[in-house]
Design a protein around this nucleic acid. Structure first.
Length: 911
RNA sequence: GCCCACUUAGCUCAGUGGUAGAGCACACGCUUCACACGCGUGGGGUCAGAAGUUCAAGUCUUCUAGUGGGCACCA
């Protein structure tokens, strides 16, 4: 069989996925072992109308690597896909489109028509992200795909809401909330981001009633003074003690407000006097509560001023009002000064509008009980296990400890409408359905709450709502098998928004944690270390990368970079894995070109003493690699697994094993024929040759299995081409399934051979030394040298057994093995572990160069010896270090002495 | 303000108290019949700085500097 000369990822990427999916390989049901242990991952559901970014690609790759690996180990593996309705962002997107297409606002077409439009939009574009997930090669079970607004998931949402309400954890109340005047909805604290900006600190003077005195307050939001209902000072602040209890004549409003004393005020900051606006500032709200101050709302929901602000201000935007307040104070000569000041502004995470703190009636969840459950789980069982543990466990714990109530209502139309109904008197009935509510109320003359729930409310239930839990149905086979899930893979930005809330709802409603481990990925940054973002336009589109380098190379790169810290984008590195893909392809191509008489046969790797050193060596290396990969993946050390695979395949298998056995494998094939001449047919392979071909192709097959979780397409493409592959190579759980590398048994053989590895190391070292001498002394590639080696009998035997390979790879004409060297003076020399090497050079090189080379090497060795001598002459070291360590150093010194002596002799001889 | 992480070759990064590593880049050589997306060889390090613990520190502790992140405050 002849393969193309270079790997073309597109071919493989266009065929295998469909077959895997339609053959049912992704569904846990493919596993026929009734005792199989479960392994499950639920995907962090991406926005249904979103598209794939590099952060997804990273997380998805890692989840798929784990799933494919566990599946091959015989676990009943489930990787559950789905999408999130993403309330605000989806509604914004459709609103924008509606404006563009029809020039209308959602309000103009009404709630029903609008939500219908969003569903339409979802049907139209919801496939984008899932198609991209297919392209990534994700082995997710599409038959279990979920959407957060599926009927059963919506039932789960209502059930949780009603239960929490009935138990008193959900309540409705008027509080200061984060209000986005642009999106016209409330936001939770987590959806607000801080931004530092250069602004002004404005000092306003308030006259004290029945006095000449004025009290100066500083503010960054002067317009809120229209809603001031007090001025507060610190009770211990002597500057103001006599004013406490007095009254302020609030300019521009004609209102009289008290001066109150409150610990909240920091006497050191500003003027030590603070204007108090309970309706428009969270801290002032608290102060207001303590002093029974009235709450005067001076703004509308769009952040324009309302009638309470006075006729001059009514209708003005908050920033225009701010300017006008300043002007008016200046006119009244009550404007003391304006200082430049760095203000931190709360911004809406979505639209970047400045958040206005407002008094508003909303729904809240009291988190105390659920928080304590989550903290107790961490305290008692150290769960979930964060990877990396530092710093995430501490951040998670601290956040929980300081958790406040969660604002869950949103003034949107897209989402789960709050299951609360009001009668004509405004009485609230919370129920699972409108008919239940009607029954509760004794009337069907009810109006449902207009608001919907925070998107993260339904996401919080994802780990069990996707497995069939609805509240009515609380025990399903799916839940029993796959809950708790094995691991959650996600980014650090949603540890609070999502991870913690899943833990809390899971404990509360299922009585068990939702997952054992949480693997937190780093952030993918651009090549300058900047966060990738749409607005900056510095994002790298995964699809472009797939197109350019292939999906497998990208997956390999992302896995290889995943050590828990941020990943700075590096094209050169992906190119490297593209090259690696090609290397795998070509190594396979070589094996297949010489596969006549061979077939994949795991028994061919059961070796004994009689087998060659090279064979024992490569199988030992293979098994160690498999063990290392398994261990690395157990510990989520993806980059370690990648490194092991890369070096095993490229260095051990390609650079050495293929080269060592090449002649044996190829033998019998006609050598190059003159142009125009017909090549004679190849001779049929001998039994030994067929065995060698079987062995190399079996090692290759094992390597493809190890690589499969990372490089699914390439490995399947090649595996299918190997002679003799069949379902007998599958893990026994998949014995009856159609052939696929993704169902083979993941290698885990324990057999190793340290002796063979050491012997092979000697051969490699000998060849490398000879090559080094050739290269340093500019010996032409065509020159065949004689290699003389002095060594003990055991090493001689090793070299003798590999003579043909040594001659070929060192480009030598002859190999002379003896107890001691007997070579012309004009020879290049080197010392390797346990052996001396010499190459007679008469007529090949100039001696000056060789002298230089030898001096350089001697210097290197002497520098090392000096260090070692220093250590060994330290009595403390000899006394206290482990005896074997001391012995090791002594041996090393002896070795260096031998080498330097030998090199000195050679140098002398050259003179 | 509090807490955390990071700082290793020109670049991007691994590194488990015991001889400092990879890929790329660089230099030299190679149409060696799987692969130039390749093969061979080589140069390149005060492991941010300082102090400490230890027989021994890139690795553990403390401090300093720089970079990044989280939390709080922000009248």
């Amino acid at each position: 069989m002849e393969l193309a000369k270079a790997y073309n990822p597109k071919e493989a990427e266009s065929t295998h996925y469909q077959r895997w999916e339609s053959a049912g390989f992704f569904a846990p049901e493919i596993n026929q072992d009734p005792d199989a242990k479960p392994f499950s991952i639920v995907i962090p559901p991406p926005n249904v109308t979103g598209s794939l970014h590099m952060g997804h690609a990273l997380q998805h790759t890692l989840m798929d690597v784990l799933t494919r690996w566990k599946r091959m180990q015989g676990y009943r593996a489930l990787f559950l896909p789905g999408t999130d309705h993403a309330g605000i962002s989806t509604q914004l997107m459709v609103t924008r489109q509606l404006k563009k297409d029809e020039g209308k606002t959602p309000q103009q077409i009404g709630r029903e028509a609008f939500t219908a439009k969003v569903w339409e939009w979802k049907e139209q574009f919801g496939g984008t992200i899932t198609n991209q997930m297919r392209r990534e090669g994700l082995s997710v079970d599409w038959s279990r795909e979920r959407f957060t607004m599926d009927p059963s998931l919506s039932r789960a949402v209502r059930e949780v809401f009603v239960t929490l309400y009935e138990q008193g954890f959900i309540y409705r109340g008027k509080r200061i909330v984060n209000w986005c005047p642009n999106d016209k909805t409330v936001l939770s604290d987590l959806e607000v981001q801080d931004d530092k900006k250069q602004g002004k600190l404005v000092y306003l003077q308030y006259p004290v009633k029945d006095s000449d005195r004025k009290i100066t307050v500083a503010t960054t939001r002067p317009e809120t003074m229209l809603g001031d209902t007090a001025v507060a000072v610190n009770p211990t602040d002597e500057r103001y003690t006599d004013l406490i209890g007095k009254t302020i004549l609030l300019p521009l409003t004609g209102r009289e407000i008290p001066i109150v004393a409150d610990e909240y005020v920091d006497a050191e900051f500003g003027t030590g006097a603070v204007k108090i606006t309970p309706a428009h500032d969270p801290n002032d709200y608290e102060v207001g509560q303590r002093h029974n101050l009235p709450q005067i709302e001076v703004m509308n929901l769009d952040a324009t001023m309302n009638e309470n602000a006075g006729t001059e201000f009514k209708g003005l935007d908050r920033f225009a009002a701010r300017q006008l307040v300043i002007e008016k104070f200046a006119e009244l000569e009550l404007l003391e000064k304006e200082d430049d000041y760095e203000v931190s502004l709360p911004l809406c995470e979505r639209c970047k509008t400045i958040i206005e703190p407002m008094l508003s009636t909303q729904w809240f969840v009291r988190m105390d009980e659920m928080r304590d459950m989550a903290l107790e789980l961490m305290r008692a069982e150290h769960s979930p296990q964060f990877v990396p543990e530092v710093p995430h466990e501490k951040i998670y714990t601290n956040w929980l400890e300081n958790l406040k109530d969660w604002t869950i209502s949103r003034q949107l139309w897209w989402g789960h409408q709050i299951p609360a109904w009001y009668d004509s008197e405004g009485k609230i009935f919370v129920a699972r359905s409108s008919s239940d509510a009607a029954e509760l109320a004794g009337t069907s003359d009810l109006v449902q709450d207009e608001d919907v729930l925070d998107t993260w409310f339904s996401s919080a239930l994802w780990a069990f709502s996707t497995l069939g839990w609805t509240g009515e149905v609380t025990e399903t086979e799916e839940l029993k098998t796959f809950y708790p899930t094995s691991v959650l893979v996600t980014g650090r930005d949603i540890i609070f928004l999502w991870v913690s809330r899943m833990v809390m709802t899971g404990l509360k409603f299922i009585g068990q944690r939702p997952f054992y481990d949480v693997y937190v990925t780093g952030t993918v940054l651009d090549k300058n270390g900047q966060r990738m973002s749409k607005t900056k336009g510095n994002g790298v589109d995964p699809l472009d990368v797939f197109e350019k380098y292939g999906v497998d190379a990208t997956r390999m790169y992302l896995s290889g970079a995943a050590s828990g810290i941020d990943i700075r984008w590096n094209d050169a590195q992906i190119e490297n894995y593209r090259n690696f893909s090609n290397k795998i392809w070509n190594a396979s191509r070589f094996c297949l070109m010489n596969s006549e008489g061979a077939k994949v046969d795991p028994a061919s790797l059961d070796l004994d003493e009689s087998d060659s050193i090279a064979d024992k060596w490569i199988v030992s290396r293979l098994n160690k690699t498999a063990q290392g990969v398994n261990k690395a993946l157990e510990e989520y050390q993806f980059h370690t697994a990648v490194r092991l695979l890369y070096h095993f395949f490229w260095d051990d298998f390609c650079d050495w094993y293929i080269e060592l056995v090449k002649d044996e494998i190829i033998g019998g094939r006609p050598s190059v024929v003159a142009e125009g001449e017909e090549p004679p047919p190849p001779a049929p392979p001998t039994a030994e040759q067929a065995a060698a071909r079987t062995r190399i192709i079996t090692v290759l097959e094992q390597a493809l299995r190890l690589l499969h979780p990372f490089m699914p397409y390439l490995t399947e493409e090649l595996w299918q081409k190997l002679p003799g592959v069949n379902s007998e190579l599958h893990n026994s759980a998949y014995a009856k399934a159609d052939n696929s590398v993704m169902l083979t048994d993941f290698p885990h053989n324990a057999w190793t051979d340290e002796k063979a590895e050491a012997e092979m190391q000697s051969v490699i070292e000998l060849i490398s030394r000879v090559r080094n001498i050739r290269s340093e002394l500019n010996i032409k590639p065509g020159e065949r040298v004689s290699v003389h080696v002095a060594a003990d009998a055991a090493i001689q035997n090793v070299f003798r057994a590999n003579e043909a390979q040594i001659l070929k790879l060192a480009r030598a004409a002859e190999l002379n093995l003896s107890e001691s060297l007997n070579v012309p003076k004009a020879s290049a020399r080197a010392v390797i572990g346990g052996a001396e090497v010499a190459i007679p050079l008469e007529g090949l090189i100039d001696f000056e160069k060789e002298a230089e080379r030898l001096s350089k090497e001697t210097e290197k060795l002497l520098a090392e010896k000096q260090k070692l001598d220093g250590q060994l002459s330290n009595a403390n070291f000899v006394d206290r270090a482990p005896a074997e360590k001391v012995q090791e150093l002594r041996e090393r010194v002896t070795d260096i002495e031998q080498r330097t002596n030998s090199l000195k002799q050679t140098l002398e001889a050259l003179k």
